[in-house]
Design a protein around this nucleic acid. Structure first.
Length: 214
DNA sequence: GCGACAG
DNA sequence: ATCTTGTCGC
């Protein structure tokens, strides 16, 4: 799958609608993940975007990392987030010396107005299993999950479950998990809990966030 | 119509 | 996203 550069908002929306059917939301996905990549993008005052990828092994040790700093090509538009962040992330991914078995993206997957957020887009482009983990709610409605780590409630959009508000730390604000590509929602939440044994955000995303500010 | 809106 | 000190709590 190749990257299309949209020139307008209408074009970007059309690309999302066209690629949406290509996202695999039926596969369970691997239960055992060897290498997990966390992805995030940092912004600078000069209109520069820095894509960062950090790869962790099953013990959560860093085994690889890569960054790519470029000029932003698309403005920030809610719902079209991916067109701003994907270019530097693809460049950073191409600089890895290993191939991760899962992409953990900072944002949404299928919990999206057109059911095609950043995690779906990156999953389809790379062909790799991908999930989205966001820090705030964006679409749909959900109840507040119980206080204990592991508790969750469904995020419902137009009568459909599109993700979960998942508590990764007892007494701390939940994160918002949704499917991206080639992984079930159950599996995605299990992976997020495995990857976030100590802090609210999964370790791969925390480290990528830190790296993107460099 | 108006405001809100992943990062 | 980013601009930013101290402060409450485990």
């Amino acid at each position: 799958m190749t990257w299309d550069e949209p020139a307008t908002v209408a074009e970007a929306e059309a690309i999302q609608s066209r690629l949406r059917p290509l996202a695999d939301l039926s596969s369970e996905g691997p239960a055992e993940i060897g290498l997990t990549a966390g992805l995030d993008v940092g912004y600078a005052e000069d209109g520069t975007v820095t894509g960062a990828v950090v790869v962790l092994d099953a013990s959560l040790n860093v085994v690889d990392r890569a960054v790519a700093r470029e000029r932003a090509r698309f403005p920030y538009v809610p719902g079209l987030f991916a067109f701003r962040e994907i270019p530097p992330l693809l460049t950073a991914l191409s600089r890895l010396s290993v191939t991760p078995g899962l992409l953990v993206c900072d944002g949404y997957g299928v919990a999206h107005p057109r059911r095609f957020g950043l995690a779906c887009h990156l999953g389809v482009l790379t062909g790799l299993p991908a999930i989205g983990v966001a820090k705030t709610a964006f679409v749909g409605t959900h109840e507040t999950p119980a206080d204990e780590r592991g508790s969750w409630t469904p995020i419902v959009l137009d009568g459909e479950t599109v993700g979960r508000a998942l508590r990764t730390r007892t007494g701390v604000k939940p994160v918002y998990v949704s499917q991206g590509h080639r992984m079930s929602l159950d599996n995605a939440c299990a992976q997020v809990l495995r990857l976030a044994p100590e802090f609210r955000l999964p370790e791969p995303i925390r480290l990528a966030d830190r790296l993107s500010r460099t």
